[in-house]
Amino acid sequence: MVRTTDEGGSVHDEFERFVEASGPRLLTTAGLLTRERQLAEDLLQVTLLKTWSAWPRITTSPEAYARRTMVNTYVSWWRRRWNNEEPSEELPEAPTEHPDTDRNLDLRSALARLPRRQRAVIVLRYYEDLTEAAVAELMGVSVGTVKSQTSKALSRLGIDPALGAEAMEVSR
């Protein structure tokens, strides 16, 4: 798809329309990646700034460009800022009689402990519903890398101690 640009200074309006239309979806993706509102806002802000900076050069879907920028920013910034990272917070062990709720808490906790790249792959594959090839293109890696990262992530989710005995039974 080729994005058309209006003449006469309406590029600003076009960008603002893009933010209005795509911003909530991008914030959702940022929230899934970072799991924290403040970090998600930071990630979205930087993504939009970079997107605006490249706006005249974007010839395909701006949202696809922004999503690619967001994922790569997330993976690279968080990797570089390892010194700033804090340990994943353990979710409170709320007493409950519902095994499904326990399982969801375990899964959420395990997801929170995934390395950044693996989490990004999981979000793109199983929330954004992208194909392996699309994820590879978006992240700038090979399909083989996406496959291996997905496999490792699913494996971690399956054998994570936080998943408890039930998961161990399933994985056997």
């Binding site: 969801n104 899964l107 959420r108 997801l111 979000v123 199983y126 929330y127 699913l154 989710l157």
Partner: peptide, 8 residues
């Protein structure tokens, strides 16, 4: 996993 991501 899909349901959990959708919930988040």
């Amino acid at each position: 996993l899909t349901r959990e991501l959708q919930a988040q």
